[in-house]
Amino acid sequence: MRVALFITCVNDTLFPGTGRAVVTLLRRLGCEVAFPEAQTCCGQMHLNTGYPQEATRLARHFTDVFAGYDAVVTPSGSCAAMVREQYPRLARAAPGPSFADAVAETAPKVHDLPEFLVDVLGVTDVGASFPHRVAYHPTCHSLRGLRLGDRPARLLGGVRGLELVPLPGAEECCGFGGTFAVKNPAVSAAMCADKVHNVMATGAEVLCAADNSCLMHIGGTLRRQRAGVRVMHLAEILAATEDDPGTGRGAKAGTGSGTGAGTGAAR
């Protein structure tokens, strides 16, 4: 299967290790992975902050870049939800049928990573090994937008040695919300403080999610508090094997730092 990787602007710029983990994982599962280099950003930040024109321009660019692939996989639940839920709305508001046609063609093929693995490839055991105690934060867009349900938990359940500990209040938002974090910093920080409190209560070594934006927020707070819990993207755990426990970032990967939002313990 010819799969295009939509890395997302945040992962591309700040968390390249996650992208490398996705590539490692998908290849291990027999996919041919393409990286269309013309890709930039899905436009979520623009739309959610109140700039639909810019968002529409980026959405048009996205549909141009990703037309013609069997599937598009992205390690971000919120970016996948942006394409699938918001692009059709942008298309309705935009003049002319061509963009709407492009959205109708491309948007349904865009999948968040856990969804792609479970629903498209039909696997829950991806041959990973990660002997650590892990808590999973489902993130709002995966949970309520894409309705991923227990797919991530099933994937983590298939990882050798991994102990999945339940996270109290898992379904509650961490308070990131894109520009919400800077527009309403007090509430955002209060929400994150409660999330961090719940993470600490689990006794987990690692907090995992399928969206680095949320992890940047929670991880940034954990690190500020020197909490000793590191954060990792789901892809990095699924890419890790007994032979390559370096969380799949790959020996060839050079100087990647993975999810830099994590604690010092991550490095």
Binding site: T13, F15, G220, R223, T259, A261
Partner: peptide, 8 residues
């Protein structure tokens, strides 16, 4: 209230 991630 939060650290910023290391830029790779």
């Amino acid at each position: 209230t939060r650290d910023i991630p290391d830029i790779p």
